[in-house]
Every structure is written in structure tokens, then in C-alpha cells.
Amino acid sequence: MEVRTIKVFTTVDNINLHTQVVDMSMTYGQQFGPTYLDGADVTKIKPHNSHEGKTFYVLPNDDTLRVEAFEYYHTTDPSFLGRYMSALNHTKKWKYPQVNGLTSIKWADNNCYLATALLTLQQIELKFNPPALQDAYYRARAGEAANFCALILAYCNKTVGELGDVRETMSYLFQHANLDSCKRVLNVVCKTCGQQQTTLKGVEAVMYMGTLSYEQFKKGVQIPCTCGKQATKYLVQQESPFVMMSAPPAQYELKHGTFTCASEYTGNYQCGHYKHITSKETLYCIDGALLTKSSEYKGPITDVFYKENSYTTTIK
């Protein structure tokens, strides 16, 4: 009895394709271990004539594949690729409408935090270190965002349907971005203890939790000093293409032309909904596939993004 075979390709990165001759009487799992086709788990399936010449994702289970996976995804987590594939199996079914010149995501599976993050990423200057993220990001900007969303979920250790947080998501993504040249110098002034300067680099240099107003941050924000008295913390120097200011959701007025974009969060910790506000020729609110415009805006804002380049204080 002759062994019926077909020729397929296996890959971990969709760049390096490895030619395989597979036995049609055995499952993919018996031949390769966990195997995925377009995100779908085909591990328990036997090869079919229609699979001839198709590319299958496999887990990096030998040295060659491990090197290829690390170079593309910059992670050695053995569960990463499987999590990416199972997320992709959902995100490829989502709709990605162009809204006001940006790629958004039609609401499904509690994905409003991903839509808000995706919209924000198209408006701030950011370059990702893992080629996987950078490639998928370019495709997302062009309207094909399924891979990018699935990668975000995998890097953030999230599953489809789980509630997510924009600030946490951005923080994970910033860790995989090139923020080497970003720098922030802060000064804390206390009447009792004097003053202390701190220099922050990388992710810490672009994120701040405690106030939404970048102007206020430049002037000074009140913080408790270690001595128990009130101290003032203010920005001395900022070198970065953008800054992200966050605070627990509270009524906040966004003035046209003073910011790049913002995240609105309605609801409580267990259950809520994100919308995205962007400042173009007027203010726009993007909620999944829905767009509304207004000249002014007041609502429960939790993150505001500002364009920056270089700032030095005039406070002496």
C-alpha cells in the first residue's frame, strides 16, 4: 500500500517557510505537534488534498525554529505562539472599519479597549522592536488589523473576551517599542525636605499616572512627601515624541487643539466601556464603527496623549 502524501510549508514567522512532505494517514499533531492554519487549530486533523502548498504555523520545537521565533517575536515564552494563534482565530472574524481616516474595530468580545489602543497607536510616533509587531502594525494602518490585535493580546497575556485596560495595554506595548531616546527629568520640591531631581528613561519617561493635564504637570502637581507634608512635583525636561497622561476616570474637559487623542471610560472596574476622542479640525468621538463630532467635550476621561518633541522648564 502506497503512502499518500502532500507537500506543505511549516513556519513560526510566515517569513521562513520549511518544506514538509506530510503523510495523509496521520494527523498534523502526530507529525508536527500543535499546528495552526489561519489561526485555526488543526492539530487533530489529517492532511487533505486542499492543504497542498498551504502554510501551517507550528510551535518552535527545534533550534532553527526557536531562533526564527525569537528573532521575529522577541520572546522565548513557549506558550506565546499558541496564544497568538488562538487569538487570531477570533480577531480574523472582527470587522476593521476605516473611521475618520483611522483603522478602528467594530465592537465584539469586549474589544473596546483594543480599538482605543489601536486608534491611539496610529496617532503617536512609535516604532516597535519585534519585527512581528512592526509588520502587523503597518498592515493594521492599511486596514488589516487582525494579526496586530492578536499579537497585542498575546504580548499582554490576554484572551479574547476578557476586559482590558488601555493604560495597561499601552504599557505592555511600550515595553516592546523603541523608547531608548526618551528621557524625563522631574523635580520634587518640599518646604521641609528641599528639592530632589529624578531622571527617568524609556517607558517611565512617557507615562504618568495622577493627572490628565500635561500643562498642569509642567506647572506642578501636589504629591505627598515622605515627611508627610505636601510637596510639588513638576516637569523639568521632556525628550520624547509623545507623552501619555493618565488618571482614574473623572469628568474632564478636553479643549480642541490642546491634545492629540484621549480615552474615555464609562462604567466601573468590573464592567465598563471605552471610547476614543481625537482632536482634528474639530473633536471626534470614535466608538467602534461609530463616529460623532463636537466642538467641545466633557466626560469621564482616563488617558490623554500629547505630541511632544523637546521641553525644558522655565521655572527657576
Results as ranks from 00 to 15, higher is better:
Asp41Asn: 10
Asp287Met: 03
Asp109Lys: 05
Gln134Tyr: 06
Ile286Ser: 04
Ala154Glu: 04
Arg167His: 09
Arg184Met: 00
Gln20Ser: 13
Val42Gly: 06
Lys280Ile: 09
Glu162Asp: 14
Ser171Phe: 15
Asn16Leu: 05
Lys54Ala: 14
Thr226Asp: 10
Gln31Trp: 14
Val206Met: 04
Ala150Glu: 00
Thr19Cys: 11
Leu153Phe: 09
Pro224Phe: 10
Ile223Met: 09
Ala205Ile: 00
Gln122Ala: 03
Cys193Ala: 04
Thr226Cys: 11
Lys95Ser: 14
Asn268Tyr: 11
Lys201His: 14
Arg184Glu: 03
Thr91His: 05
Cys285Glu: 12
Arg184Asp: 01
Glu2Lys: 12
Lys255Gln: 12
Ala115Thr: 12
Tyr172Asn: 15
Thr159Trp: 09
Ala177Asp: 00
Cys271Asp: 01
Lys44Gln: 15
Cys156Glu: 04
Ser171Arg: 14
Pro97Arg: 09
Leu291Cys: 11
Glu125His: 07
Gly161Ile: 02
His48Arg: 13
Lys316His: 15
Asp38Arg: 09
Thr35Asp: 08
Ile45Gly: 13
Tyr84Glu: 03
Ser50Val: 12
Cys182Arg: 03
Ala136Gly: 08
Leu118Met: 08
His18Leu: 08
Thr116Lys: 01
Val206Asn: 00
Ile105Phe: 02
Leu200Val: 14
Gly202Ala: 02
Met244Phe: 02
Ser181Leu: 08
Tyr252Phe: 12
Leu102Cys: 07
Cys225Ile: 02
Tyr284His: 11
Tyr84Thr: 03
Leu151Glu: 04
Asn89Lys: 14
Tyr208Asp: 06
Ile124Gln: 05
Tyr252Trp: 14
Asn14Arg: 09
Val67Tyr: 12
Thr55Phe: 06
Tyr57Trp: 11
Phe242Gln: 02
Asp41Tyr: 07
Thr43Asn: 08
Arg141Lys: 15
Thr199Gln: 09
Thr27Lys: 09
Ala136Leu: 03
Asp41His: 09
Cys261Thr: 02
Thr55Lys: 10
Glu215Gly: 04
Tyr57Arg: 06
Lys7Tyr: 09
His18Ser: 07
Leu126Ala: 04
Lys307Trp: 03
Gln98Cys: 13
Ala250Gly: 13
Cys285Met: 14
Glu239Thr: 11
Tyr36Val: 05
Gln270Ser: 15
Tyr172Cys: 10
Lys233Gly: 10
Met209Cys: 15
Val160Tyr: 01
Glu144Ile: 06
Thr10Lys: 13
Asn157Thr: 00
Phe259Gly: 00
Ile286Trp: 00
Ala108Asp: 07
Glu281Val: 02
Thr313Gln: 15
Ile124His: 02
Met85Leu: 12
Gln196Cys: 09
Val221Arg: 03
Ala146Ser: 13
Ala40Gly: 13
Lys92Cys: 07
Tyr57Gly: 06
Glu52Leu: 11
Ala87Glu: 08
Leu212Ala: 04
Leu59Ile: 10
Val221Gly: 00
Asp109Gly: 05
Leu173Gln: 01
Thr27Asp: 14
Gln30Gly: 12
Ile6Glu: 05
Leu254His: 00
Tyr208Arg: 01
Leu173Trp: 02
Pro60Val: 04
Leu173Pro: 01
Phe259Glu: 00
Gln175Arg: 10
Gly33Ser: 04
Tyr252Arg: 01
Val188Tyr: 07
Glu296Asn: 12
Lys106Leu: 10
Val243Pro: 01
Phe80Val: 03
Ile124Pro: 02
Gly29Trp: 09
Leu212His: 05
Asp41Leu: 10
Leu290Met: 12
Leu102Met: 11
Gln31Met: 12
Leu65Ile: 06
Gln230Asp: 10
Tyr252Met: 12
Met244Pro: 01
Pro47Phe: 05
Ala145Ser: 03
Arg141Pro: 03
Lys219Asn: 12
Ile277Glu: 00
Gln31His: 11
Leu254Gln: 01
Thr43Arg: 11
Val243Leu: 09
Lys298Arg: 14
His48Pro: 12
Lys44Pro: 14
Asn187Glu: 14
Thr55Asn: 09
Ile301His: 00
Gly228Ile: 02
Pro60Tyr: 06
Lys158Trp: 04
Leu179Thr: 02
Gln230Ile: 15
Tyr172Val: 11
Asp303Pro: 00
Gln20Val: 14
Lys255Glu: 13
Cys190Val: 04
Ala140Lys: 06
Gln197Asn: 09
Tyr57Glu: 06
Val12Trp: 08
Glu204His: 12
Met209Gln: 14
Ala289Lys: 09
Cys285Gln: 10
Ser181Met: 15
Ser246Met: 00
Lys275Tyr: 00
Asn111Pro: 04
Ala146Asn: 02
Leu186Phe: 13
Tyr138Lys: 15
Thr43Glu: 13
Asn187Val: 11
Lys316Phe: 15
Thr103Ala: 06
Ser25Gln: 15
Tyr36Asn: 05
Arg66His: 10
Glu215Gln: 08
Leu65Gln: 08
Ala250Thr: 14
Gly220Cys: 01
Leu290Ser: 15
Val166Glu: 01
Lys46Ile: 11
Gly272Asn: 00
Ala117Asn: 05
Asn178Leu: 06
Gly267Trp: 10
Leu114Phe: 02
Gly257Ile: 00
Asn100Pro: 05
Asn187Tyr: 07
Ala262Ile: 02
Ser181His: 15
Ser171Asp: 05
Thr313Ile: 14
Leu173Phe: 04
Lys201Ile: 11
Asn61Arg: 13
Pro224Asp: 12
Thr258Gly: 09
Leu102Tyr: 08
Val304Ser: 01
Val236Asp: 01
Gly288Trp: 03
Met209Arg: 15
Lys106Tyr: 09
Thr312Met: 14
Leu118Arg: 04
Glu162Cys: 01
Leu173Met: 15
Val22Lys: 07
Glu253Arg: 09
Gly164Gln: 03
Val160Arg: 05
Leu133Tyr: 01
Arg4Lys: 13
Tyr297Trp: 13
Ala40Asn: 15
Ala150His: 03
Ala136His: 11
Thr76Asn: 09
Asn157Tyr: 08
Ala231Trp: 01
Lys191Phe: 08
Gly228Lys: 04
Lys280Glu: 10
Ala132Val: 05
Ile105Ala: 06
Glu308Pro: 10
Ala205Lys: 03
Cys156Gly: 05
Ser294Met: 15
Pro78Thr: 10
Pro34Glu: 13
Leu283Ile: 15
Ile152Leu: 08
Ala140Asp: 04
Asp62Pro: 06
Asn178Gln: 11
Cys271Glu: 09
Gly33Ile: 04
Asp77Asn: 08
Met245Phe: 15
Ser246Leu: 04
Ile286Gly: 02
Met85Pro: 05
Ser295Pro: 09
Lys93Asn: 12
Ile6Trp: 07
His176Leu: 13
Tyr214His: 04
Leu291Thr: 15
Ala142Met: 13
Ser279Trp: 04
Val206Ser: 03
Lys127Ser: 13
Phe305Arg: 00
Gln175Ser: 09
Phe56His: 04
Leu121Thr: 11
Lys158Ser: 02
Thr91Leu: 05
Glu2Tyr: 09
Ala146Phe: 03
Ser104Gly: 07
Asp23Ile: 15
Ala140Thr: 09
Lys7Asn: 11
Gly39Ala: 15
Lys316Val: 15
Val236Lys: 04
Gly161Thr: 01
Val206Glu: 04
Leu88Pro: 05
Ala231Lys: 03
Tyr274Lys: 02
Asp180Pro: 00
Gly143Phe: 01
Arg83Thr: 06
Glu168Pro: 02
Thr75Met: 10
Ala117Val: 12
Tyr84Cys: 08
Asn178Met: 06
Lys106Ala: 15
Glu215Thr: 07
Pro241Met: 00
Ala142Gln: 15
Leu235Gly: 02
Thr258Gln: 13
Tyr306Ile: 01
Asn49His: 15
Ala154Asn: 05
Thr169Leu: 08
Glu281Arg: 04
Ser295Met: 13
Val188Thr: 15
Tyr96His: 05
Asn268Ile: 07
Ser310Gln: 15
Ala262His: 00
Pro78Met: 11
Leu235Arg: 01
Gly257Gln: 05
Cys227Trp: 02
Glu239Pro: 01
Lys229Arg: 15
Lys46Ser: 13
Asn157Gly: 12
Phe56Ala: 06
Ala289Pro: 08
Asn111Ala: 06
Asp63Phe: 08
Glu144His: 11
Tyr36His: 06
Pro224Cys: 10
Ala289Asp: 13
Trp94Tyr: 04
Val21Tyr: 15
Ile277Arg: 00
Asp180His: 10
Glu264Met: 12
Met24Lys: 10
Asn16Val: 10
Thr55Gly: 07
Gln30Glu: 14
Ala150Lys: 02
Ala205Thr: 03
Ala177Val: 08
Leu81Cys: 09
Ala142Cys: 15
Gly101Leu: 04
Cys193Met: 04
Val185Arg: 06
Glu253Trp: 05
Gln270Met: 08
Phe148Glu: 00
Glu215Ile: 02
Tyr265Glu: 00
Tyr36Arg: 05
Leu119Ala: 07
Ala231Cys: 08
Cys156Tyr: 02
Thr260Ser: 07
Tyr274Phe: 12
Leu163Thr: 15
Val188Lys: 11
Lys293Gly: 09
Thr260Glu: 10
Thr43His: 14
Thr312Ala: 09
Ile6Met: 12
Tyr234Val: 09
Thr120Phe: 02
Leu59Lys: 08
Lys46Tyr: 12
Thr10Arg: 11
His48Asn: 13
Pro34Ile: 13
Gly82His: 15
Glu204Cys: 08
Ile124Leu: 15
Leu179Ile: 04
Trp94Val: 01
Ala69Lys: 00
Asp23Thr: 10
Asn157Lys: 13
